[in-house]
Design a protein around this nucleic acid. Structure first.
Lengths: 236, 236
DNA sequence: ATTAGTTCTAGTCAAGGTGACTTTAACTAG
DNA sequence: CTAGTTAAAGTCACCTTGACTAGAACTAAT
């Protein structure tokens, strides 16, 4: 509750500060059903404002790194992960996002594979949460996560993005489980299979996944590329 | 540790400057065919770098305005227009966008109605260009316009955005001309009519457009809302 | 007044995609 | 060997979409 006049004056004169944050999605098996669910890592704030509340990982932009590099870096620093998909989400610049100073946050969103996500660092100040069961987060981070979820669902319904939440090889049923987890509704297995197999980016392998209590499903591979943003257009 | 590295460290920590720019689209009749074409206003740079080259309208972010307000303001200041549609495009933050300093630009894109666009200010330092015939622009502004065009085409193909380039009343043929101008291909009039009329946001009026050399077409009205971004979600 | 020319508007038809559903295949567990 | 499970392919009706036809309603020229 420190609102002395020096703070206020500083806030009015200083240019808005710029920060990079990242919404990181990964699939993890639900404790109850064991089926894959969307999770994301948050960090505990150790300073005011919003001390002790959970927030998106983020930090300032270094002078010698691009926006995407900064997102990639604070993703690696907080979770130890490197994403298979990383895209700019939105620039949030409302006047009262932070009570102490004006902050403009350029937010990225990322998808990481489940094998990696299982190894992710977790600690007193970094913890994974189910995307549908976050509490109240610091700043406007609930709204940011909501928007990231909206984008993820949108891209999943149209683009070919689900595969970045899976490993290199997968069964069509696993792809369907990803869709069902993200879109939160059941899909007809037969129709889904027909739909996915029509995509040219999906390649049959000769391998089958053994170990189930039923007919072993064929394994597939994704051969497409993430695609479109202005930063990912020409750059390799 | 010493004074030298402190100096370097200070520069390293100096935040990149933040700017807001806007890509403003409007329809104007082509000189040759008279059919509507996409145009956008550019401003001549009066300072280095890129002095005398054309650039997107833009400027710094004031401490007491939101990102969208800033875009709206520099749109009004350079062209005298108020947009019927304004949405964030992307945050561009590459390291070498400007040769003199590190600048992060948050870019918006706007649509204005043709009646207004005809009244827009034009001067020695503000001129409208056909979107497909811009020369070399300052900074990375060619790439930004390309991306804005890509977004416009995308939104036009799926969303209901074309109407923001038209006045309050319009014929279905005028809507088709907008699509043809933006997507740059001919569309079958009968099929297009069927497609558009299926949208619930399109309302028949009892009026007809008189004055043509043919059967007078019915006038329609758009009753939908711009919709979706995180800043436009709850706000009316 | 009649006819030609234009665009508006409604309708037909075939091809392709999608949801609901059925059937058969291939494995495991008992 | 049978029951249980999921994989995988196929059928059918419905809807959307592109290509096309035909009539309606106006203007301009003869």
């Amino acid at each position: 509750m420190n609102t002395n006049s020096a703070n206020v004056a500083e806030r009015r004169l200083a240019p808005p500060s710029l920060a990079i944050s990242t919404v990181i999605f990964a699939l993890r098996p639900s404790e109850k059903s064991g089926r894959p669910t969307l999770w994301l890592p948050l960090v505990r704030r150790i300073r005011e404002p919003y001390r002790n509340m959970w927030a998106l990982p983020g930090g300032p932009l270094a002078h010698d790194e691009s926006l995407q590099d900064a997102a990639s870096r604070n993703l690696r620093e907080t979770t130890g992960l490197t994403p298979h998909y990383l895209e700019q989400l939105y620039a949030f610049g409302g006047l009262h996002r932070s009570p102490t100073q004006r902050v403009v946050s350029i937010v990225y969103w990322a998808l990481v594979q489940p094998t990696e996500a299982a190894l992710a660092d977790e600690s007193e100040n970094v913890r994974w949460f189910r995307a549908d069961r976050l509490g109240d987060l610091a700043f406007d981070h609930n709204a940011i996560v909501d928007y990231a979820l909206w984008r993820l669902r949108n891209k999943m319904a149209y683009g070919s993005i689900a595969y970045h939440l899976l490993g290199e090889f997968f069964t069509l049923a696993q792809v369907r489980e990803v869709y069902e987890a993200v879109l939160d509704r059941q899909l007809d297995p037969a129709n889904f299979r027909r739909h996915i197999k029509a995509a040219p980016e999906i390649e049959e392998t000769g391998e089958y996944l053994q170990g189930g209590k039923h007919r072993p499903p064929r394994l597939y591979r994704f051969t497409g590329t993430p695609g479109l943003g202005p930063d990912n257009r020409s750059t390799p």
